[in-house]
Design a protein around this nucleic acid. Structure first.
Lengths: 109, 109
DNA sequence: ACCGGTACTCAGTGTTACTATCTACCAGTA
DNA sequence: TACTGGTAGATAGTAACACTGAGTACCGGT
């Protein structure tokens, strides 16, 4: 992946995953596929799983195991209340940063 | 500083500094002050200097030493051609990420 | 002589995403 | 039976980044 993108994803990718889950619960492999469709073509699978472990340990999601017809059982992640609060905070932070950057791009700083 | 902000700045703060320099050359202490005025209230001074060293080593800026009336000599950083190219690339990456995130926020993914 | 503001430097730390590899389950095919 | 490919998840090691906290140095004013 482009190095700039890699670094820029730090701090946002976790929020991106939470935002995807906010739409509807999903499991890791599915999330990876959705992100690929959304344009994040080369986000490594391992990266997503690492994030899922992290947000689980932070207590932002609830987990349900479901058997799959096509492979090993899936771990379906769903945002809980804490996760929603965290996501809201993420959007606030993002908005702040985004506004500042647009200002900078327009040469107003 | 808020932890989310700290993580989100990774990969963008370097671009922010370059964008500030794109307006007009500046020295470290001045950049820190400008960023504080712009709303980035609690970005550590040491962080800015570390970035300046980095972009110097990457060859994105030219440096001129000037005596100061109020303290030790200033190192004035100015964007060079490579720096402008790098900054342009940064904006491209930023735009891509920004668009995807706005889509996600609107629930279109 | 001292203090505060200016200006820069540096070692050590925690967090993050990536790479590469591994395990495991199942369906289809030779 | 053996083998391949797609699905699904886990993990150790690495590089890059921003922060913390401390330090050095220069100068003007009291």
């Amino acid at each position: 992946m482009a190095k700039q993108m890699t670094e820029m994803l730090k701090g946002t990718l976790e929020g991106i995953v939470l935002a995807v889950l906010n739409g509807s619960p999903a499991y890791g492999y599915e999330i990876t596929a959705r992100l690929r469709d959304t344009g994040f073509a080369d986000i490594a699978e391992g990266t997503i799983y690492a994030i899922l472990v992290r947000i689980e340990q932070k207590g932002l999601v609830s987990i349900e195991k479901r058997p799959s017809e096509k492979g090993p059982p899936r771990k379906v992640y769903a945002l809980n209340t804490a996760g929603e609060a965290y996501l809201a905070e993420f959007w606030t932070t993002w908005s702040f940063l985004s506004e500042r950057l647009e200002q900078l791009r327009d040469g107003k700083a």
